[in-house]
């Protein structure tokens, strides 16, 4: 069985016939070739697969592509505009908010969602807001500093 989906990804409307069991993360990575969204734990815990669904951070490994019908999705590839990094990306680079980089796309997108809701977060707000994103390099200190820096710039 194939099911038609129409999803706006990074501003462009995409239409495909997909198997219902296709996860959103595999749709993004394999059907669209947007490999910035990572598969980490594949069990809704690590947050490496986080994307913005209608502006809200969600785990794309725990959602079917067909469930995103009609939605607007932003992946890490959609953040930079005209060759200029998004302020959150810029702050992660500046504050060295990444080591191996695997968790970074998810961290950045969850941080975007956090700053949208709370433009001036405290350290505790940032740590709580990033609870659903794990960094196996344990580079949390600089990640928190990066989100604070991004908040100051935005």
């Amino acid at each position: 069985m194939r099911f038609g989906v129409s999803i706006t990804v990074n501003g462009a409307r995409r239409k495909h016939e997909v198997e219902p069991r296709l996860l959103l993360v595999h749709y993004l990575r394999e059907t669209l070739g947007l490999t910035g969204t990572n598969v980490g734990c594949d069990t809704s815990q690590c947050g490496a697969c986080t994307v913005l669904l209608d502006g809200k951070a969600v785990k794309s490994c725990t959602m079917l592509a067909v469930q995103a019908e009609g939605a607007s999705i932003t992946t890490i590839e959609g953040l930079a505009k005209n060759g200029k990094l998004h302020p959150v990306q810029e702050a992660f680079r500046e504050k060295h908010g990444l080591q191996c980089g695997f968790c970074t796309p998810g961290m950045v997108l969850t941080a975007c969602h956090l700053l949208e809701k709370n433009p001036k977060p405290s350290d505790a707000d940032i740590r709580h807001g990033l609870e659903g994103n794990l960094c196996r390099c344990t580079g949390y200190q600089n990640i928190v500093a990066a989100v604070k820096e991004a908040a100051a710039r935005m």
Partner: peptide, 9 residues
């Protein structure tokens, strides 16, 4: 419940 992303879905 869960974390931010879980609570959003």
């Amino acid at each position: 419940i869960g974390d931010v992303q879980v609570r959003n879905r």
